[in-house]
């Protein structure tokens, strides 16, 4: 609750973030749910408990929450150590730091040591908007995907994130989750089921199938609906798990569609588009490929919604990209 006096109700400060953006709470709520069920869940963050909502977990399970301060590398290495004692640590910070600054700790201490740490890179892609390049994460899929034995997951919305988080409690391998800032429009209903490693196929189009992940799924879904409305046969695959990639779903699309369009809030180098390209290069089918995302550049700054328009990651933009191919 706000205790500020002499301010109008529209004013707010950092600690109000969690109340202002309820979908930010998906992570903490789900972890609390798992801990309540008896899973040995621990959580940690690096001075971002209000930004990622883990403050709720900290309040519910103070003895199982670790505030690491601004020391992301220590956090990741410590989480790996903690996992050896039987805890399941979920550590969260901005994806720009987790996916790049702590890349080596993730490789050595988490993935190579096969510890069931769950790394949650939030505010990924360009969702930090005008905070600029230091806070943008358009390389994290690429770095994480190159690490052996690490599962890489990019949920489309809060409902999917929740389901995949629940599944993660029993998942034997380390996971990197790449999530947004909690403002993502809903794609799925609350109880829709998903499986790590298994793409959510919304349909195959004989003209075009879009393969998207993360926040881009929403825009892609809108685009597909529009394309079908105007007479094309368009399909959509939500590739929430980028590694291990659901190759069967990709190959089905490659043999069904004229065009495969990948859409991601990430550099087109190394991300989902690259993963799909690798499969297509080794398994030639009838489809040709177009990768769409951030075109190997540092994004401009602006409020995020405007950035999504600019980089054609919203429904209209994805449709434009698709129509130009058709």
């Amino acid at each position: 609750m706000n205790t500020k006096t002499n301010l109008t109700p529209e004013s707010w400060q950092y600690r109000d973030l969690n109340e202002r953006t309820p979908s930010l709470s998906v992570m903490a709520d789900t972890l609390i749910e798992l801990a309540d069920q008896g899973y040995p869940i621990a959580a940690g963050t690096a001075d971002l408990q209000h930004s990622n909502g883990l403050v709720k977990f900290a309040n519910a399970y103070p003895d199982r929450f670790v505030q690491f301060g601004i020391s992301e590398q220590n956090m990741v290495s410590a989480a790996a150590g903690m996992a050896t004692t039987g805890m399941i640590p979920y550590v969260a910070t901005f994806a720009s730091f987790l996916g790049l600054l702590t890349c080596e700790q993730i490789r050595m201490d988490v993935a190579y040591c096969a510890q069931p740490v769950r790394l949650i890179g939030h505010h990924t892609g360009i969702s930090m908007g005008f905070y600029g390049t230091s806070h943008h994460a358009t390389e994290d899929i690429s770095t994480m995907r190159a690490i052996a034995d690490l599962t890489v997951v990019s949920p489309a919305d809060g409902a999917q994130f929740r389901q995949l988080l629940l599944e993660s409690a029993n998942y034997p391998e380390p996971i990197y989750f790449r999530i947004g800032r909690g403002h993502e429009p809903a794609v799925y209903s609350e109880n829709e089921q998903f499986q790590l490693g298994k793409a959510k196929v919304h349909g195959m189009g004989s003209d075009i199938t879009i393969i998207a992940c993360g926040m881009a799924v929403h825009g892609a879904k809108e685009a597909v609906a529009e394309l079908n409305k105007i007479g094309y046969s368009a399909g959509l695959i939500d590739m929430h798990t980028i590694k291990p990639l659901d190759e069967a779903a990709v190959l089905e699309a490659v043999n069904h569609s004229r065009i495969i369009l990948t859409v991601e809030e990430h550099n087109i180098l190394g991300g989902l588009g690259s993963a799909v390209a690798e499969i297509m290069a080794e398994n030639p089918g009838k489809a040709r490929l177009k990768r769409h995302g951030i075109m190997d550049e540092y994004a401009l700054i602006s409020p995020p919604q405007r950035l999504y328009q600019h980089y054609k990651l919203d429904g209209l933009g994805v449709r434009e990209i698709a129509e130009a191919l058709l």
Partner: peptide
């Protein structure tokens, strides 16, 4: 850091 996590 690993040791810190083990202790935690």
């Amino acid at each position: 850091s690993n040791g810190v996590g083990i202790a935690m």
